[in-house]
Nucleic acid binder design. Structure first.
Length: 745
DNA sequence: TCGAGAATTGTTTTT
DNA sequence: CAATTCTCGA
């Protein structure tokens, strides 16, 4: 929505209420970000509030960045002083400064989910718990749930009701000890420790209460109990708390989001002003009514109904296909037909699970339609990136045993599991860190034959540490790659995958360059009187820990492919939601649980309301899930859309054999059956015969620049394309990975 | 100690 | 189906 259009009455009312608690119930597409940003500008301009006293909290980095730039555009001066950050980033900032007050070291590492898994594995080994009996995953999620509810390990132990919980309690305690020993916090700890800090140290709390006199929280329906407490504590003194949310868009229950936070806001903050934003500026009437039709089946929601001044628009398209392959093919085809002007950015294809993206991607590549895949495997989770980061972490925080262990034998140095466990138990005996144990190992003969190799490793790290003092991070990474032999090992592998890894590392390096440039630009920390002693490397690692994905340049017009969750907060002219099937969306687990069903329904509501002009919902009669062919009926949500809004089409390829009755078996899996001959034959992708370019074409690569295609070879999974780049010379790459763009000139 | 091949296992969704 | 873990031979 354009920033300069007039605000409607409700929006203005919400904006102008600045003193005391306020709940803004902002339906999808009702302009809530607009209200928030204008409210900030209003506080500063009309109410003479210092930007310094404003805190705006979001959930995602994307949302924070978006809000930041819109506020910057609106506020003429002093905008940098406004704190706009995610919950996690805010907490890190506070903890870096004050966590020593509750007995931690300010230089803590932040563990991501992989680190957590590794830590838990170690814990369970130590406690002699069979990982088959009790999965580390489920222990971790139990711990996470506990932390979200602010239950520490002691209390968990006390309240453990059965044997299983007792075991988990033991893991919890040991896990927490391990993190503590490694000087690390996990994501949940960031919030929990901040709240504990506030509760333990009135001075710190008072400092931040005074600082943040005006607090705004976006996506309030997604807050969990710790987050609520965090906000509640901060707002306690001035009570200028404004939360914006939509209970119908609460889709993160699995992550501890407590929908009661929004439903009971008025009880928690008596005298709260409540404003409902119900006018939708995004979708056409039919789409909006479809959304309303679905969501009204949920109970226990705040009463509201979105309306629009726009016309009916096109009807909602409902499609039924014979197979997931056909679905993907038809969606691709339709987009191609509907997009004559090449403005592919208008389209998005949404789905329930990331696994569904692959089949779509294949078709997009085959059709030569540019697309952008959001989510999936995080950039920072890739092996090579984690390896490099582990080197950096080792340099920055030698107490981070996990990082040290990760790189000790990467690349291969002939230091194996036997040595690691010997050094590990040596470290445990002496109560020293793994790294220190490594240092002493050669002398005390612990490591035996590996002593020399360990010594070489230690020297390597010592060099890095020395150099890290004076080198920019990017150069340090290059040094690590070279001296550690990592680069050479990759080169030796020599295949395209190795090259892709190298490219990713290059991307990390350029990220580091950007980071340090930004750092020298404006340092918002400096003016806050933060001890400037936090070295750039530490800050870089911190940033990287809190950012899920690298923001790849969004150059060019591309169709967006992403999960429904990732789509929240976005909008597109035309939206395709694929896989509208019972058993997939809603998932099998949700079907006999009404709370889960409501969550899925909200997710469906979120998906529908992303569409501005045209919405297409499709399902496939058969689809391969986890390697087995499954048959699904249409999602029950489709039946909740009023018939008169719908335009239906059914694939001619569907035969009308009835599907088995629903209650018969919960998973309608037919895995044992022989495949009908029709499958595979008809839908076989004729091996991506169509790349959008051919030999001799001029193409552009996101980073390598412009070049000419020399050769296209039919590889195992993808085409191998050789390009002669003008600047960088000859490179071989996978077509799917390199995403080359044909130049028309 | 390491790599290749076999076996097994799993799914939501993410800061 | 694909990613991870396991097992075994060298």
């Amino acid at each position: 929505m354009a920033e300069n259009t007039q605000m409607n009455e409700r929006q203005r009312e919400a904006m102008e209420w600045t003193e005391g608690p306020e709940l803004i119930l902002a339906g999808a597409g009702s302009g809530k970000t607009r209200v928030l940003t204008h409210r900030i500008a209003y506080l500063i301009r009309e109410k003479q509030v210092s930007p310094w006293n404003i805190l705006a909290i979001t959930f995602t980095n994307k949302a924070a960045a978006e809000m930041r730039s819109r506020v910057d555009a609106l506020v003429e001066s002093g905008a940098e002083a406004i704190w706009v950050a995610t919950f996690h980033a805010s907490c890190v900032r506070i903890l870096r400064r004050f966590i020593d007050r509750i007995g931690y070291d300010n230089h803590f590492s932040i563990y991501d989910s992989d680190d957590q898994k590794a830590a838990m594995r170690e814990v369970m080994k130590k406690l002699n718990i069979d990982p088959k009996q009790l999965r580390e995953r489920s222990v971790l999620s139990a711990i996470s749930a506990a932390k979200n509810e602010m239950i520490d390990s002691e209390r968990y132990e006390r309240e453990a009701a059965d044997y299983l919980e007792t075991r988990i309690a033991a893991c919890y305690r040991a896990y927490q000890d391990l993190l503590r020993k490694n000087n690390a916090l996990d994501f949940d700890d960031l919030l929990l420790k901040t709240v504990q800090l506030f509760e333990a140290d009135p001075d710190v709390l008072a400092y931040y209460q005074e600082r943040f006199r005006y607090i705004m929280v976006d996506e309030y329906q997604d807050t969990n109990t710790v987050q609520f407490r965090f906000v509640e504590l901060l707002a306690k003194k001035y009570r200028n708390l404004c939360v914006v949310g939509d209970d119908d868009q609460s889709i993160y229950k699995f992550r501890g989001a407590n929908i009661k936070n929004i439903l009971n806001f008025e009880q928690a903050f008596p005298g709260a002003k409540v404003v409902k934003l119900e006018q939708n500026y995004r979708s056409s009437g039919n789409i909006l009514d479809a959304a309303n039709g679905v969501i009204q089946n949920n109970e226990g929601r705040k009463d509201k109904r979105l309306w629009t001044a726009a016309g009916r628009g096109e009807k909602v398209q409902l499609r039924r296909y014979a197979s997931a392959a056909e679905e993907a093919e038809q969606i691709t085809e339709e987009i191609k037909v509907r997009c004559q002007d090449g403005a592919y950015g208008r389209f998005a294809v949404l789905y329930r699970t990331n696994a569904q993206s692959r089949i779509l991607e294949e078709r997009f590549v085959a059709a030569g339609i540019p697309y952008r895949l959001v989510g999936g495997v995080n950039f920072y989770q890739r092996r090579e990136i984690k390896d490099v980061l582990a080197y950096l972490k080792t340099v920055a925080n030698a107490a981070d045993d996990l990082a040290v262990q990760r790189i000790l034998n990467v690349p291969k140095r002939g230091i194996g599991a036997a040595t690691v466990s010997a050094v590990g138990s040596f470290a445990a005996d002496r109560e020293i860190s793994f790294f220190e144990a490594l240092r002493e190992a050669p002398a005390s003969g612990i490591a035996g034959r590996s002593s020399e190799k360990i010594q070489r490793f230690l020297n390597l790290i010592a060099v890095f540490r020395r150099e890290s003092e004076k080198l920019p991070i990017a150069d340090l990474i290059r040094l690590v790659l070279e001296k550690s032999g990592y680069q050479e090992a990759l080169k030796e592998e020599g295949d395209l995958e190795a090259q892709a890894r190298m490219e990713n590392i290059e991307e990390l390096i350029s990220k580091a360059v950007d980071f340090e440039r930004d750092l020298s630009d404006v340092s918002d920390r400096a003016e806050e009187g933060l001890p400037a002693d936090l070295p750039p490397l530490d800050r870089f690692l911190e940033e990287v820990a809190l950012v899920a994905d690298i923001d790849r340049a969004e150059e060019g017009e591309r169709v967006t492919l992403m999960t429904l969750h990732a789509a929240k907060g976005l909008e597109f002219e035309e939206v395709y939601i694929s896989g509208m099937e019972e058993g997939l969306f809603p998932g099998n687990r949700s079907i006999d649980d009404s709370e889960e069903m409501e969550e899925e329904r909200r997710l469906c509501y979120v998906g529908i309301t992303r569409a501005k002009q045209r919405l297409s919902l499709s399902s496939a009669k058969s689809r391969i899930v986890n390697g087995e062919l499954r048959f699904h009926r249409e999602s029950p949500f489709l039946a909740e859309i009023p018939e008169e809004l719908i335009e239906r089409q059914k694939s001619a390829r569907i035969n009308d054999d009835p599907l088995p009755a629903s209650g018969a078996h919960r998973s309608s899996s037919y895995s044992g059956q022989p495949k009908p001959a029709a499958f595979g034959k008809i839908f076989q992708v004729e091996h991506m015969k169509t790349l959008p370019y051919e030999v001799g074409d001029r193409v552009r690569h996101a980073r390598f620049g412009v070049g000419s295609v020399l050769e296209i070879k039919d590889g195992k999974q993808d085409f191998e394309v050789t390009v002669e780049f003008d600047e960088l010379g000859r490179r071989k790459m996978l077509a799917g990975f390199a995403k080359l763009e044909k130049l028309t000139s």
